Every structure is written in C-alpha cells, then in structure tokens.
Amino acid sequence: MKTYIPKNDEQNWIVVDAAGVPLGRLATLIASRIRGKHRPDFTPNMIQGDFVVVLNAAQVALTGNKLDGKVYTRYTGYQGGLKKETARQAIAKHPERVIEHAVFGMLPKGRQGRAMHGRLKVYAGETHPHAAQKPQKVEVR
C-alpha cells in the first residue's frame, strides 16, 4: 500500500474584512487558513494553505481593557532600550502590525512558519492591489 501525499498545486486567495471583528477570532481564522487546516487533506509537514488578504485593519476590535492593557514590547539592542507601546498606540501608528503579530504567534516556529508569513497581506484601508488573483470573500463569525 502506497502512502498518499497531497499535491500542493491549489493556491486560493481569500479576503477577510477586519472591521468590528475581535482580534483573537480574526487571528485564529487567518492562521488556520494560512496553514491549510481547513482542507480535508491537511498535512502538517506541507504548506497547503491559502493566501489571506485582510482589509480594514485599523478598525479591528479589542474586547475588554485590551486597548490600554495590552502592551507590545521590543528591544533595540542598547542598554535601557526596551520600547513599549499599548495596543491603542500601535493601532493608531501601524494597524497592520497588530494583526500580523497576533497571526504570526499562532503559526509554527521555524523554516515552515517563516515561509507561511509571506501568505498574509494586511492593509489598513478598504483597497488592496490583489484584484488580479480574484480573491474570495470569507466572513468571520
């Protein structure tokens, strides 16, 4: 009996509208679509997922006290160089990074996860340059 290995020839594009959707629900949907877990022939050691285009990243919803309580930190490499910003400041400055940070934390770490990062396209507004790929609209419940 031969082992079935699925082919990676199907690459779909989907569009997700982030306006008013909680960040966690949005990130789990996107991460599972990028990995390909929605497919019946999902194989963990292959990249079979879709390309995901996220629109209206500036209007993503954060529930509870997360706008002021959630803190994003980064280290500059210098002494005392720990930079902090709240979610409210991050969404005002660069809303794309907030969604990317949430999704990338849910993807596998390592070579395969880094290859999946290129399948996520996030835009702060309504427009995107991927109309030629004919993306399908997906609703977040």
Rank of each mutant, 00 (worst) to 15 (best):
K2F: 09
A124R: 01
Y75V: 09
I5Y: 09
V103Y: 04
H101Q: 15
G36F: 07
Y4W: 13
F51V: 05
A87E: 02
S32Q: 10
I5C: 12
P135I: 03
P40L: 07
I34C: 06
A61C: 06
A61Y: 07
R33F: 13
P6Q: 04
P6Y: 04
A90D: 09
L26Q: 10
F42P: 01
A90Y: 12
Y123S: 14
E85Y: 11
P129C: 12
R119N: 05
G24K: 01
N12K: 08
K84L: 10
A31R: 02
T73K: 05
N65D: 15
G77T: 15
V53A: 04
I5M: 13
V52G: 02
V54E: 07
K2Q: 09
E10N: 14
I14Q: 01
G105E: 12
D68Q: 08
V122H: 06
H117W: 09
G81Q: 05
R74N: 08
R39Y: 11
G125K: 01
G110M: 05
T63R: 01
P95L: 06
G64M: 04
Y123V: 15
A132W: 15
Y123G: 11
Y72I: 03
A18F: 02
K7L: 14
E139Y: 07
G36L: 02
G36Q: 03
F51R: 03
L67A: 00
V103A: 04
K137F: 10
L29T: 06
H38C: 04
R119M: 13
N8F: 12
V16N: 07
A124W: 06
T73N: 14
K84F: 12
K134N: 13
Y4H: 08
H101D: 13
G113I: 08
M1C: 13
H117E: 10
R111P: 11
A90V: 08
E96V: 11
A19C: 14
G49K: 02
R25Q: 07
V16I: 11
A61T: 11
F42E: 02
E10H: 15
P44L: 01
A102D: 14
K7D: 13
V122R: 03
A58Q: 07
V21R: 00
T3P: 15
Q112C: 03
G69N: 01
V60M: 05
N8Y: 14
K83Q: 13
A87Y: 04
M116W: 05
G77V: 11
A115F: 00
N8R: 10
V52C: 08
V103L: 10
Y78E: 05
Q133C: 06
E126N: 15
Q79P: 11
I99Y: 05
P129T: 13
R35Q: 05
